[in-house]
């Protein structure tokens, strides 16, 4: 295994040549906020929270999608990055109806945690207040589009781990919606195996197990990584 040595926030870090900056940082105990990244799934670089500054590049690069390189100098916490990350979370809160007080995931929500961690105390933008559907046609699960952040983790978990690709995204811009099969109600989906991986993958309260109270909404998204690793390391 070849190794690369780089510096992250001035700290010398070594990482396998194929590692991403995000992996290298985490191994070194440096936290970079993420939302669309989930261990075990492919990276799409969509949420822009993990953007970092790399000396010599005039563009910010997503840590999840950037390979380490020898001598690379990475900054993960400049004032500019912190400001942009706060704005990303602000924009998300303004986009749909994230009303924590009435959300099943209150207290177990990655979006809420991000707001807290990044110091996003209030939203300066107009709330868009769209009318979004709630689909509870499935016997065991439900999806509330009011709480969806379009991270597409459910789409990837379903496609890459379960292998059935029930979920995808239809429409574009803020009108984008996660759909099951060819935009049928979830309960009528013929591809869904009811495996529940999308529930594990969802960072907010958008996809939930039915009949579960707020206090019980804890989900272990690390199980996705466990499944993928267990599958790859069979002996």
């Amino acid at each position: 295994m070849s190794v690369r040595t780089l510096s992250i926030n001035g700290q010398q870090v070594s990482a396998p040549a194929e590692a991403t900056v995000l992996e290298a940082a985490r191994d070194a105990g440096i936290t970079i906020p993420t939302l669309c990244h989930l261990d075990g799934l492919s990276d799409v670089g969509a949420c822009r929270l993990c953007l970092v500054e790399i000396t010599g590049s005039n563009k910010l690069q997503p840590a999840c999608h950037t390979r380490v390189a020898e001598g690379m100098e990475v900054q993960t916490e400049t004032p500019r990055l912190q400001q942009y990350r706060r704005m990303v979370v602000e924009l998300l809160f303004a986009e749909r109806n994230h009303v924590c007080a009435v959300c099943v995931a209150n207290g177990h929500c990655e979006l809420q945690n991000l707001a807290r961690a990044l110091g996003m105390y209030h939203v300066r933008f107009d709330y868009l207040s769209p009318t979004c559907a709630v689909d509870i046609t499935h016997s065991r699960f439900g999806i509330d589009h009011n709480r969806c952040v379009l991270c597409a983790r459910c789409v990837r978990a379903c496609d890459e781990v379960e292998g059935v690709h029930t979920w995808d995204i239809a429409g574009r811009g803020v009108a984008s919606r996660v759909i099951s099969d060819l935009d049928q109600p979830w309960g009528e989906s013929t591809s869904c195996t009811a495996c529940g991986k999308c529930v594990l993958a969802c960072p907010t309260g958008a996809i939930f197990r039915r009949g579960v109270t707020v206090g019980e909404m804890e989900r272990d998204s690390a199980k996705i990584r466990f499944i993928v690793e267990a599958r790859n390391q069979r002996w």
Partner: peptide
């Protein structure tokens, strides 16, 4: 705003807010 694909947050929501 109409043409944003919706994948990344700054473009998807940022264009709507700039327009507003």
């Amino acid at each position: 705003m109409d043409e944003s694909c919706g994948k990344c947050i700054p473009c998807r929501v940022g264009t709507v807010q700039m327009h507003r």
